[in-house]
Design a protein around this nucleic acid. Structure first.
Lengths: 90, 90
DNA sequence: TTGACATGCAAGTAACAACTTGCCTATGGT
DNA sequence: ACCATAGGCAAGTTGTTACTTGCATGTCAA
């Protein structure tokens, strides 16, 4: 469960989630080019791939395979648990 | 704004927020002993103090001073913005 | 004012996380 | 079969972060 927080701690991974929120189901290469274009992210394919693995382990991203293409989908459900942990005081 | 995520990435800092959520307005020493007792955190006073600084910079904790005592309060407001960023798709 | 208590500062160390680099596997088109 | 494409694996490097250590500041009570 602490994986979720660590996953969200990196700005590149948050940009990936932003991009998937805008257009869900992208492949690795699709994400790479769109992150460079629209989000000013200058990371290599391998770097993005590793970030996607982190996001997948945190269950913030799910994937499906079709041949040589792997599609990535944002999963927002773990976010709800985050807020519920501390909310309702203040 | 990314400070909030980085602040939440550390398990000791999350335990601090848990403890403040349970009993708000604790001093540094109070937090240290209760973290050791109830949360199994074995960190020194200085370590906890540094964590509190990180939480304060992320505006997840606010403080008030009274003489030689400094009281710490949890602030949950930054958490709301987190979820709103990606929610409403999925 | 002396001593005990509550906290602050700052340099050094050690562990971890992001990124690079180079090579490998597998799928699909021609 | 061949080659280009999409992706994966793993070791090494660099930068960051958590933690320690030692000393300093400030407050209060006797």
């Amino acid at each position: 469960m602490g994986d979720v927080f660590k996953a969200l701690a990196d700005p590149t991974r948050r940009a990936i989630l932003d991009e998937l929120a805008d257009r869900n189901g992208q492949t690795l290469f699709e994400l790479c080019s769109r992150l460079t274009m629209k989000h000013g992210v200058g990371s290599t394919r391998q770097a993005i791939s590793q970030h996607l693995n982190v996001l997948e382990e945190a269950e913030l991203v799910s994937t499906t395979r079709d041949g040589r293409y792997k599609f990535h989908f944002i999963k927002t459900s773990p976010l709800l648990a985050i807020v519920d942990r501390w909310l309702a005081q203040d």
